[in-house]
Design a protein around this nucleic acid. Structure first.
Lengths: 259, 259
DNA sequence: CCATCTTTGTGCACGCGTTCACAAAGACAT
DNA sequence: ATGTCTTTGTGAACGCGTGCACAAAGATGG
């Protein structure tokens, strides 16, 4: 049944496991580099020249040994007895993450979330550039969002090719997501950030990362329930009474139009 | 420097590691339960009575052995030679995740993203109920968003207490996030879903999960860069020329008002 | 130039998570 | 009732990620 081998499932072990040993940076480390970069950027703005692994670790919310090991994969950029040069490290991490180059991105599905992403400052800053906003709803075409005109999804292929877009962001309703994904991939996109609550099927060589709001909430609910259950110990051992009950649809998840 | 021990760092190993061996469901499994639940709900809507681990696994985008092991932590709910009863499994997972009860949630920071979340269908369905929308901008107070009036953050404490809110969602700008977090926790919130690109400091017993859009993009960029680099092999070994250059601010990330 | 002190870089061990592979369990046909 | 066939549940091995703890490296002061 399944065609291509998707890489999105695993919550975070980062997609693209097989080639992760390219020059050898572990996926877990790659996932933390943006964290370090953010902390370092803040230090840079405060004109702090150097920082110790201990300081940087607490600023990034990680263990200092972990941080040092992470950096060791990039090379030996620290000075013993002193710490790390902030500017130098910012540059090295940026380069490692590929942020010193320009990444054109398309956002497909301009509902509330697409809107939010288009206005998201973090995009424009870190080397990412919104090449186009796309939506299947012709009524939106031409409308300005975050200073950019919304364009119809008919133009998707042309835009991806001419702008050399390799990263696509999907914020459509779940039913449209797979189709949009297929078209993006066919047009040349090889990395996808998926906000639609659907499992995307992609061919080998295409990375998918998933951001799922309701999953995060459900995980919180689990821990929350356990906290409450711990107080009265096994109070939940006996099920209330009813059957499935609650648990409703899902269909009309993200936004309204697109596809 | 760091006060409380935060649990948000690890990209996904799910917060609350220490008490994860309550009755023994691994964090990695908990993080996948919502995935299974979604796939099962879809089957349920199509009135499919039973499903094999193989079918369900591909629908959820995971390995079938992993799925079976995950379910084994919940108990033996399958029938050998047949598979799993869809309705029964939906109920068991819902119960395990605590979705058979009502979870009032507050969203703090009603910018674009707060808007998107307020309108997000996935909230209302799966046992979550938006108890209030809060924003520090008095100009927004009273405005209807997704049918609910925006209320001023001054009311935060009262609402959290009277509505017994235990889960808070933070969609404020990064500078306001920690302060909002502190107030939420002081008022009684014990689980936080943080969309602001900041490390939140929380006391023990409070779970934080982080959703960071720019981090996900940066991880994609890393893999994308490597794909490109693989083609011409070590073409990036020699750095272009310039120094830091690119890498800009960060400050005005999420949304505008709040705090 | 030497001693001391700080901080990095890493060898090692441990634990969690994943996957394989198979025995046990049960459905179903005869 | 018995045999066959499907599918679960899990024992065991493996690999990745984490954290400890320490030796090496270098700065700094006398």
């Amino acid at each position: 049944m399944a065609t291509g081998r998707s890489t999105q499932n695993n919550p975070n072990p980062a997609a693209g496991n097989r080639r992760s040993r390219g020059r050898g940076i572990p996926d877990a480390t790659v996932a933390r580099l943006p964290l370090y970069l953010r902390a370092l950027t803040a230090l840079s703005e405060r004109s702090v020249p150097t920082v110790s692994s201990e300081e940087l670790a607490t600023a990034a919310g990680v263990n200092s040994a972990k941080l040092r090991k992470d950096f060791s994969y990039l090379g030996s950029y620290g000075t013993r007895g002193v710490g790390y040069d902030v500017e130098y490290l910012v540059y090295q991490i940026s380069r490692e993450l590929g942020l010193t180059q320009d990444w054109p991105v398309v956002i497909v599905g301009i509902g509330n979330l697409g809107h939010a992403l288009a206005n998201y400052g973090g995009f424009a800053s870190r080397g990412f550039r919104v090449a186009a906003l796309l939506d299947a709803d012709a009524a939106l075409t031409g409308q300005l969002v975050a200073g950019l005109p919304v364009r119809h999804t008919d133009e998707m292929e042309e835009i991806v090719r001419s702008e050399r877009v390799s990263i696509g962001v999907i914020t459509t309703p779940p039913v449209a997501a797979q189709q949009v994904c297929d078209r993006l991939v066919a047009a040349g996109v090889t990395s996808i950030l998926n906000f639609a609550p659907t499992v995307l099927n992609v061919p080998d060589g295409v990375d998918v990362r998933k951001v799922d709001l309701s999953i995060e909430l459900q995980i919180l609910a689990f821990h929350e329930q356990r906290k409450a259950g711990d107080d009265l110990d096994d109070a939940d051992a006996e099920v209330p009474a009813a059957q499935p009950a609650a648990v409703v649809s899902e269909g009309t998840e993200l936004e309204e139009a697109a596809g």
